[in-house]
Design a protein around this nucleic acid. Structure first.
Lengths: 117, 117
DNA sequence: CTGTATCCTGTAGGATACTG
DNA sequence: CAGTATCCTACAGGATACAG
């Protein structure tokens, strides 16, 4: 089975650099994807699950909680009859976007590179 | 035991976005650190081990090989009596720097945030 | 709908010992 | 010095089932 594509792991070397500090956010599993989608527009839990099909509910929850704890993402429960929760990037979270954009940009080049070679 | 601080993992969702593509580079373990130090100046294997004390030789090798394969890092063997190998960022590798800088920048804010809260 | 709890697996990466 | 090989562990994350 396993449509698994690739796995990496980030181990924070120490509390030394902010790089590490931040990578503990971006490096975390699907986090970049979550932030990416959230940057387009706020989203509900199930919407994120659709956006990122392969992520499991558990992990999505965990990541979301982490991001929330770090003040990167906000969580708003709307007391509607079917409960809905809206996640959005906070201002701080927005600051991650340029970082991610840089990554996307390079990723794009990398892809071209891969094709070219 | 384990002075282990933190571990994350990146799982590429699919070949979809360049984000993922690139995160397979940055997301990989100590990779951001490696690139970071390499961006300051080219370095030898053992120098990197000193820069990043907690990384094991094995992983450093693996990461370096990967980065090399992706055209992000160049490897130059100097035929000196004690063999020395110099690693440096390629031009493509240099493109990762803004991404990493963004990450560092946000990481810094995150740190302040953490202290403040 | 939005999670949470449990179980299980794959694998990243450390440690250690050895090589050219 | 610059790795390589082997073994082993921790843990991220999937799957599934269940809950408010």
């Amino acid at each position: 089975m396993s449509l698994r594509v690739r796995k990496n792991r980030v181990q924070a070397p120490s509390e030394s650099c902010p790089l590490t500090e931040c990578m503990s956010i971006l490096g975390g599993a699907w986090t970049p994807n979550i932030i990416w989608f959230l940057s387009e527009s706020p989203r509900r839990f199930s919407e994120l699950r659709i956006d990122i099909p392969r992520i499991s509910a558990k992990v999505l929850t965990v990541r979301l909680r982490e991001l929330e704890a770090k003040g990167v993402v906000s969580r708003a429960v709307k007391p509607t009859s079917p409960p809905s929760v809206e996640y959005a990037l906070t201002e701080l979270g927005g600051e991650l976007i340029p970082a991610i954009e840089s990554i996307v940009k390079v990723g794009y080049k990398l892809k071209l590179q891969a094709v070219a070679s």
